[in-house]
């Protein structure tokens, strides 16, 4: 039900919300939309890709920008990601998770690849460390957790973790930080940071199971 609530909120931001259907219908409709849109892409119908773009491009750019920090790089990532969505739509399998999650994963992977790609001089680790010091990005990272719907299971389970474990997990997922960067930021030895994250993830899986 918490998931339904979240999806409903998003849906109402997404389009004119008539308010007549109940939230479950909306959830179903929404997931069907993305699946159908991917199926259309696989058949070579560009309107499928356009539907995904209209519904999600703003959020996808924001997600990529949260990782890469720069708008023009984020748009470059989203542009490449939509081409990959188009060329790989036929590989999407509904039994392997939601279409929306598949779409976000493509954008995330491309953003992380760009971030880790040593050829981008503007994104080397030293720069990131300096920028991190202003704490702005960290604030943004923690905000992703605070913003979760208060009924959200993820919010509750993250809230039960120790502060450092929660931060480590959020820095990785939301900000695209590596183990090394997380260890540096939390002032922990690398091995300790890795094992804290490992245990945090285990606790999270058990809590959300």
């Amino acid at each position: 039900m918490s998931a339904a609530k979240t999806a409903e909120m998003e849906y109402s931001q997404l389009r004119e919300y008539s308010g007549r259907e109940d939230s479950l219908t909306l959830v179903t409709d929404q997931s069907t939309d993305f699946e159908a849109a991917l199926a259309a892409c696989a058949k070579g119908d560009r309107s499928g890709l356009r539907d995904i773009f209209d519904a999600e491009a703003g959020r996808l750019v924001a997600v990529a920008q949260r990782i890469l920090k720069r708008r023009e790089l984020a748009e470059e990532v989203v542009q490449e990601a939509f081409i990959r969505i188009w060329t790989h739509a036929h590989q999407y399998r509904p039994e392997r998770g939601s279409a929306r999650g598949w779409i976000y994963a493509i954008v995330r992977n491309r953003a992380l690849n760009m971030l880790r790609d040593g050829s981008r001089e503007d994104l080397v680790a030293e720069d990131r460390l300096e920028t991190m010091q202003d704490g702005e990005q960290l604030e943004q990272i923690m905000a992703a957790w605070h913003r979760l719907d208060h009924n959200s299971r993820l919010k509750e389970c993250l809230g039960r973790l120790d502060e450092a474990r929660r931060r480590g997990i959020l820095m990785a997922y939301v900000g695209g930080y590596t183990h090394g960067e997380i260890a540096g930021r939390l002032r922990l030895p690398l091995g300790t940071a890795k094992s804290w994250i490992r245990r945090g993830l285990l606790t999270l899986r058990e809590c959300m199971a």
């Binding site: 959020r59 929306r100 976000y104 992703a144 939301v174």
Partner: peptide, 8 residues
Amino acid sequence: PLDTNIDP
């Protein structure tokens, strides 16, 4: 949800 709840 950490991604989908972001401001577009």
